[in-house]
Amino acid sequence: MSAIVHLAIPAGDLGKTVKFYTDVLGCTLGNGEAGRWVDVNFWGNELTLHQSEEKLPVVRHDVEMGAVLVPHFGVHLTQADFDAVKDRIAAAGLSYIDEPYRRFKGDKYEQETFFIADPNNNVLEIKSMVNPDMLFPDA
């Protein structure tokens, strides 16, 4: 088995949040316990959504090209998958926190990225690298 990241997060209304991950992002479901938690196949990683009352606090941190929301998590997608997610977000009539934009233009780390929140305000960064092999070239 390859190295798979596992992340468990508060989902708020589990049913509503599951619909976001499946209907909007296009993820599939795995194991779960009805009304309590469910595993989401987050592009090959295990994201576990837990029914909850709480939301995580979110703040902005200054980085190159602006201030990003922390905490956040995300995924690197092919350009085709990235564009498909953007299309599903538009079809669902959802708003971005930070609209899609390009970072590191002309650099080996060039990427298109955006930030969006799930229904429980968990912040996601979705990106597509122009040169994905350059992310960790010595790996």
Rank of each mutant, 00 (worst) to 15 (best):
V68W: 00
A34K: 11
V58H: 08
R60G: 09
V38H: 00
V68H: 02
Y109E: 02
G44H: 10
Y101T: 08
G30H: 14
P100Q: 06
D87V: 08
L56G: 09
P100M: 12
E53W: 00
D118M: 11
V70D: 05
L69W: 02
W43L: 02
T28Y: 11
V68T: 08
I97S: 02
V18S: 04
G32S: 12
D98W: 08
F104T: 05
F104V: 03
G35R: 03
D81Y: 06
G93P: 04
E53M: 10
N41H: 06
K86H: 08
Q79L: 15
V75D: 00
A84D: 07
D87A: 15
A84W: 07
A117G: 11
Y21K: 06
R103I: 02
R102I: 14
Y21T: 04
R102H: 03
I116L: 11
K108H: 13
V68C: 02
T78H: 09
G30R: 14
L69D: 10
G15D: 15
G74L: 05
D87T: 15
E33M: 11
N122H: 09
L56D: 01
T28F: 08
L29M: 13
V68A: 06
P10Y: 01
V123G: 03
G26M: 09
D81W: 02
T78F: 10
S95M: 13
N31D: 13
V24H: 03
Q51R: 08
A67W: 05
V59I: 14
T48H: 02
P71Y: 10
E33H: 09
R103C: 02
T28Q: 14
N45T: 03
R60C: 09
D83E: 15
G32H: 12
V38Y: 00
N122Y: 00
L49F: 00
R36D: 05
W37L: 04
V40H: 00
N41T: 10
P10I: 01
E99N: 14
K108E: 12
F73T: 06
V63W: 10
P10H: 07
A8G: 12
L47V: 07
G74D: 05
W37R: 04
I116T: 05
L25H: 01
D83A: 10
R102M: 07
F82R: 03
L25D: 06
K108Y: 11
T17G: 03
H76V: 12
I97K: 07
N122V: 10
D107S: 15
K19M: 05
R36K: 15
K16A: 14
G35F: 09
I97P: 00
L69I: 02
M65S: 14
I89E: 04
V63T: 13
M65W: 11
D81I: 04
E125R: 07
L25E: 05
L25W: 05
G15K: 12
I116A: 01
Q79T: 13
S95H: 13
C27H: 03
